[in-house]
Simulated assay, not measured.
Amino acid sequence: MRNVSEVIEQYLKQILQQSSEGVIEIQRNDLADRFECVPSQINYVISTRFTLEKGYIVESKRGGGGYIRIQKIALNAHGSVLDHIFKTISSQIDQTASEGLLYQLEESGYLTSREAALMRAAVSREALLLKLPLRDEIRANILKAMLISLLSK
């Protein structure tokens, strides 16, 4: 059985997918009531599963009538995908950001789950037994080389 966080995540992704603009606005308390959980559970799901690295922009307005707005970053043009990769990776990238980028590319259909898993393994801190910042620089170079090779077909 899936846990509440997974159910909330899937629900939000589903309504985001159904949104014509790729943007949703939710009320945290309404969502907490819907899933019979505390509002902090909603905060946890949004802050861990709807991050910029995973391809989402999140805004929140607190107070009466406040909302949380979630927007999916569209990676629809091939050139924009490569631009996004270069902006995200730069000259170095940490493991969390690299995993988020791979997740986003996999979710968008640019990578298969197998390709993403192989890349995660190749750039993991367990595979790159180097001190920082060298590890993040080498991770960036490896990730860029693999992604350019796969996506420049």
Score class of each variant (00 low, 15 high):
Gln104Trp: 11
Val45Asp: 01
Asn3Met: 10
Leu111Val: 04
Glu115Gln: 14
Ala122Pro: 02
Ser152Leu: 12
Glu99Trp: 10
Tyr103Val: 03
Ile42Glu: 03
Ser90Phe: 07
Arg28Val: 08
Gln104Gly: 03
Asn43His: 08
Ser40Phe: 09
Gln17Asp: 14
Glu6Met: 11
Ser5Asn: 15
Ala117Trp: 08
Lys61Tyr: 10
Tyr44Lys: 12
Lys54Met: 11
Val123Pro: 00
Lys87Leu: 15
Arg125Ala: 13
Arg69Leu: 08
Asp30Asn: 15
Ala116Gly: 05
Leu132Glu: 14
Ser124Lys: 03
Ser113Cys: 09
Glu9Lys: 13
Ser149Gln: 14
Leu134Asn: 12
Ile89Cys: 04
Ser108Ala: 15
Lys131His: 12
Glu53Gln: 12
Tyr110Asn: 03
Ile8Arg: 00
Leu101Phe: 03
Ile85Asp: 02
Ser149Trp: 10
Ala127Cys: 11
Ala77Gly: 10
Asn141Leu: 13
Arg114Glu: 15
Ala121Thr: 14
Val58Asp: 05
Asp83Arg: 13
Glu25Gly: 09
Ser91Pro: 06
Gln27Ser: 14
His78Cys: 08
Met119Ala: 07
Leu101Asp: 01
Lys72Cys: 05
Ser91Cys: 09
Leu132Ile: 12
Leu128Phe: 04
Asn76Lys: 14
Ile42Asp: 00
Leu105Thr: 00
Ile85Thr: 04
Ile85Glu: 02
Gln10Asn: 14
Arg125Glu: 15
Ser98Phe: 02
Gly64Ile: 10
Leu52Thr: 11
Ser124Met: 04
Ile148Phe: 13
Ile26Pro: 01
Asn76Glu: 15
Ile8Asn: 02
Gly109Asn: 06
Asn29Arg: 13
Leu150Glu: 07
Lys72Asp: 01
Ile26Tyr: 01
Arg28Leu: 06
Asn76Gly: 09
Lys144His: 11
Gly22Ile: 06
Tyr56Lys: 01
Ala117Ile: 08
Gln104Tyr: 11
Tyr103Phe: 15
Ile93His: 00
Ile68Ser: 01
Ser40Gln: 13
Asn76Gln: 14
Thr96His: 10
Leu150His: 05
Ser108Arg: 06
Val58His: 05
Leu147Ala: 01
Ser47Asp: 14
Cys37Tyr: 05
Arg49Phe: 08
Glu137Cys: 07
Ser152Thr: 13
Glu9Tyr: 11
Leu147Glu: 00
Phe86Glu: 15
Ser5Val: 11
Ile42Met: 04
Thr51Pro: 00
Tyr44Pro: 02
Ile138Tyr: 05
Gln18Asn: 13
Ser60Ala: 12
Pro133Ala: 06
Gln27Pro: 06
Ser60Leu: 08
Ser113Phe: 10
Arg135Lys: 13
Ala140Cys: 05
Thr96Asp: 10
Gly109Thr: 06
Gly22Val: 06
Ile93Gln: 00
Glu21Gln: 13
Leu151Tyr: 04
Ala121Trp: 11
Ala74Trp: 08
Glu53Thr: 09
Ile15Arg: 07
Arg28Tyr: 03
Asp30Glu: 15
Arg120Tyr: 08
Tyr11Arg: 10
Leu75Asn: 04
Ile93Gly: 00
Ala140Val: 00
Leu31Gln: 05
Leu147Tyr: 02
Ser5Phe: 14
Lys144Glu: 09
Leu143Cys: 02
Val81His: 03
Thr51Gln: 04
Cys37Phe: 06
Glu36Tyr: 12
Gln92Lys: 13
Ala116Arg: 01
